[in-house]
């Protein structure tokens, strides 16, 4: 009886995870589970706010000081950025290109740390026109993933930093000319790139997606030994994937 049951369940699993059936089954499961995931997210937010009320005053003062310092630093950078953005807009206007803000805002229902894979479940699906392959951003310029499955009211996003995920990127600011390389995801918001040992890239250098001005990650450091002609460049996404709460999903289809 036990053996027959095991065999039956194995057959069922093979059928469930087979490509043609999987999407339909996953759609049904997501339809049932999505409200529960939203409830779970709300509960987590409530619990973490409650726990924060018990933080010690000293910790809060230290955090406050650090945040103020960071804010001052960001204000300085923003001034520079605003000037550049203005100049960029003027140049685009001269060239006859007017940028139009686009995309759909999605709330993250669950993400890495909570889920066993480097994926996000977002509360935007077919109902708002999301399609498989759409790009996922944080803010305006940081690209973090692509939509891998779309359901009626939700969608699944694979992070570019998922283990084994490959992305073509451009490295600026090396000792040689700009290089186009492939970044391989290592999970948890980190990537690795194999580059010749002689190329020196400073920590904090942004790495862009090929053919765009979108940031994928920043350089964190490198590792390798003196006998190896190549070294591993370690990259990290600008934001910790576990703390992502909102994303912007942009269609990958060309505008009409």
């Amino acid at each position: 009886m036990y053996k027959v049951g095991t065999l039956v369940i194995l057959v069922v699993l093979v059928v469930v995870f087979a490509a043609p059936v999987r999407a339909a089954v996953a759609g049904g499961v997501m339809w049932a589970v999505e409200p529960l995931l939203a409830m779970s997210r709300a509960t987590h937010n409530g619990i973490s706010s409650f726990i924060q009320t018990f933080s010690s005053t000293r910790t809060l003062i230290a955090e406050n000081t650090a945040i103020k310092r960071e804010l001052d630093d960001l204000k300085m950078r923003l001034l520079d950025r605003n000037l550049l953005a203005e100049e960029n807009a003027q140049l685009r206007e001269l060239m006859g290109q007017t940028p139009v803000p686009s995309g759909v805002l999605g709330t993250v229902l669950s993400g890495p740390g909570f889920a066993p894979y480097d994926t996000l479940v977002v509360d935007a699906g077919k109902n708002v026109g999301i399609q498989e392959g759409d790009r996922v951003f944080i803010g305006e310029n940081v690209i973090i993933g692509r939509v891998s499955a779309v359901y009626a009211y939700s969608s699944q996003v694979v992070l570019l930093s998922s283990p084994g995920e490959k992305s073509d990127v451009v490295l600026f600011g090396g000792t040689s000319s700009d290089s186009v390389v492939t970044a391989i995801g290592r999970g948890g918001g980190s990537f690795e790139i194999l580059i010749p040992r002689d190329i020196v890239i400073a920590t904090g250098t942004p790495v862009f997606a090929l053919g765009t001005s979108r940031i994928i990650a920043t350089v964190e450091g490198s590792e390798g030994n003196a006998n190896d002609p190549f070294k591993k460049l370690l990259l990290r996404t600008p934001i910790n994937p576990q703390s992502i709460r909102f994303v912007r999903i942009v269609s990958s289809r060309p505008p009409l």
């Binding site: 036990y2 049951g5 369940i9 699993l13 469930v16 995870f17 490509a19 999987r22 089954v25 996953a26 499961v29 997501m30 589970v33 995931l37 669950s110 889920a115 066993p116 894979y117 994926t119 479940v121 891998s148 699944q156 694979v158 998922s162």
Partner: peptide, 19 residues
């Protein structure tokens, strides 16, 4: 015969897993 465990794991994989 804890079949529910396998079903639960399959559901988690269907929700969060990729292909």
């Amino acid at each position: 015969a804890f079949y529910e465990g396998i079903m639960l794991a399959a559901i988690i994989d269907l929700i969060y897993g990729t292909t």
